[in-house]
Design a protein around this nucleic acid. Structure first.
Lengths: 262, 262
DNA sequence: AAACATATTTTTGTACACAATATGAAAATA
DNA sequence: TATTTTCATATTGTGTACAAAAATATGTTT
């Protein structure tokens, strides 16, 4: 059972004495990397589960106060999240929650298709009943989350499923690669996905388990390809979101309306 | 033309006034991330081109003095290299040049096969004469490096070729993924590769360019699969390298010999 | 001489302070 | 009134100091 992230407001708010770091906080001293790891995990989940809107500023001071550490530790965590492309750090401008472009979103899903389909042969070869049961358990929790309309948990578990599936191939490098891609996918889904899309309809996860169990490499590969394309379609289809150039257009539009009002 | 890294000794040596940061050093102030980037690039190349033996300790003080910056900047760079798995950071024990295990090496090459073969269809689809010429140029420089027995440059350019090839697919995410895998491969080759292996024999890079140019997806994919397996075989075949457990054996051996000397 | 315990030294982890830069608001100018 | 300039404020970048931990050296005991 993972730690539930504190339910922050829409923006980072000041002056709350300290954020609950979950089970890890129990230990008093919490020396070394344990604390950093807990902070990282909190921010990571906050971003991936969309508690923090893409584009949200993440000021070092605020985070430092919130977690009751110095900026030094916060910077390290933000740096790491920047490597993982979950936050964006611009020189002298600080960190913000990343806003993946549509191109980036497509690239990510293309990469996932290559990696996840490519790993299927090894997955089928190394699958064990225990591993498959672990997958079934995730699917079960996924259904529960959907039943209670918990979109965030559903998205998270959907990602967990894909990573856990790949892990069966017993290739740590690929597992890490995919973990990164899945995190970014979650961010994409949170950004572009319609409410309850990308998880509700596509919880056919159970099907692929049977294909793997029966040793059907081609079937499993085809399923994965189709599944990932479905997810992408249900998400990125909304086309380019207005950022820099369209902002101007919108403002012009507003100005024009306002002028005709007078 | 990239900057040639300073030719450091086998170990990090103290008390040299400052390391030449190459062309970037020209600028005096060198504010912001430019300096960090230069330091990163230097360390990156030093590791990937095997100027620094795997396992070499990288003390923050020494590096800070060498590059004439504070430990703060060094820590950031080391952190980044750790994220890329080129250095290993252990709590309170500092950073060392990573020592990929044989398992890790196999995982990396397996991942490369999946990614590089998987990306071939897009590469063939998007290939342009200009892009292919860029590839041919790399091959040319590769041959030059081999001609003058410059193993380090040859390994580096071999990696560049694979990355540049994948870049044709116009998928930044995949390009970055592969860049990471190739760096680690270079480290693996530098670690486990026999002298002049992994580059000398396998400079058939020119062949795949023609396959791509002729639109032969399956041919190119098959070539890539075989090529990567060849490289892996020429490198990792040497089996497990002695680290912790075998050290004991070596010491016992030495002790035994020494004892019989007296 | 070997093994253990202890002290010293070295190195890393964290916080803090100051400098550099960007941001936003007020004032000056056209 | 719109635009530019200047200045105040807030936020990040970087260096340094101190605390904590590990590595190493020293000394003691068997």
């Amino acid at each position: 059972m993972r730690s539930t992230p504190t339910d922050w407001g829409e923006e980072m708010t000041r002056k709350r004495s300290s954020i609950d770091l979950g089970p890890m906080q129990a230990e008093e001293g919490m020396s070394g990397s344990g604390r950093d790891e807990a902070i990282y995990r909190n921010l990571y989940l906050a971003i991936v589960e969309n508690h923090l809107e893409p584009g949200t500023k993440l000021p070092e001071d605020t985070l430092a106060e919130a977690f009751a550490v110095s900026r030094t530790s916060i910077r390290k965590v933000l740096q790491r999240l920047a490597y993982e492309r979950l936050v964006d750090i611009r020189l002298n401008r600080g960190a913000t929650v990343a806003q993946p472009t549509v191109k980036e979103a497509r690239d990510i899903f293309a990469a996932r298709r290559i990696v996840e389909c490519g790993v299927i042969p090894q997955v089928v070869a190394k699958a064990t009943p225990a591993r498959l049961d672990a997958l079934r358990d995730i699917v079960r929790r996924e259904h529960e989350a959907e039943a209670r309309r918990d979109r965030r948990e559903a998205i998270f578990l959907s990602g967990e499923f894909h990573v856990e599936l790949a892990r069966i191939a017993d290739n740590e490098t690929i597992a890490e690669l995919l973990t990164g891609l899945v995190s970014r996918s979650s961010l994409v889904i949170a950004t572009y996905g319609a409410p309850m899309a990308g998880s509700c309809r596509h919880s056919e996860h159970h099907d692929v388990i049977d294909l793997i169990a029966s040793g059907d490499v081609e079937g499993a590969r085809a399923w994965m390809e189709r599944h990932l394309k479905d997810v992408e379609r249900s998400v990125v289809l909304v086309e380019e979101t207005p950022s820099a150039p369209d902002l101007r257009k919108i403002l012009d539009e507003v100005a024009r309306r306002h002028r005709s009002d007078r």
